[in-house]
Amino acid sequence: MAEVKQAPVLRLYNVAKTFVTPHGNVRAVEPVTLDIRQGEFISVIGPSGCGKSTLMNIVGGLIEDYEGSVEVDGIQVRGCHKEIGMVFQEESAFPWRTALDNVTFPMEAAGIAKDERVRRAMELLHLVGLDGFEKRFPSELSGGMRQRIAIARTLAFRPRILLMDEPFAALDEQTRLLLGDKVLQIQQELNQTTMLITHNIAEAVQLSDRVLIMSFRPGRIKRVVEIDLPHPRSSKMMGGERFGQLVATIWEDLREEASKGLQELERVKN
């Protein structure tokens, strides 16, 4: 895939974050340094409360007060940036807009002519497999379809980097697998640089070129696992031997962190 070693599209350099709370300072993310190449698919996996969403929100620009730097094509960015698109875990399709009008939304805000934005939105709806549903409102569609609207809407902004924060977390397992295939297909068709936050190991292995395992709070990158499964990938590979080995490797590292998280949770509850 990424045969040429080119300059990274996204570079995180010593990115760290401490939250100031009434109960004292909470170190959410320890300095993280990371390079992501054009077209690469990266997953960040970690136990609940490891700061992975914080990291995501820093890269996406929703958190502006942090240490270190985020660079896109070598230029430092802070705050929301048009080169970085985000897909959220929660339901985020606008219920008052049809599927088509949801996807045209960012282009409308940017003042792109109507014909052009409708044309591009139709292409994207086709890409996410929602042909024929463009006039439907989100309430008339399934959860998986609504999440695909959100993905198409984010892609409509033509971001260099697509960030996805557990986008399948609210979906059932089968939908999640099929949607994973869809995301892979899109990522390959557009050569879309993608960063996914997840707590699902199989999902991370199925989709990624590299999986970053984060430690429990304060979050730091504990280990990077290269996923050497051949491309193109699909959920059909999940029964394979290598797939199983990779899942086991990741779980070994993650298990320790997850149990730390669980202990911490129980301690707080008591």
């Binding site: 620009g61 929301c80 048009k82 970085i84 985000m86 959220f88 929660e90 985020s92 606008f94 902004f157």
Partner: peptide, 14 residues
């Protein structure tokens, strides 16, 4: 208004 909807707007630089 759900915060996530506002965040969508923010990421689109509204």
């Amino acid at each position: 208004v759900k915060p996530v909807l506002l965040n969508v707007g923010r990421t689109f630089n509204l």
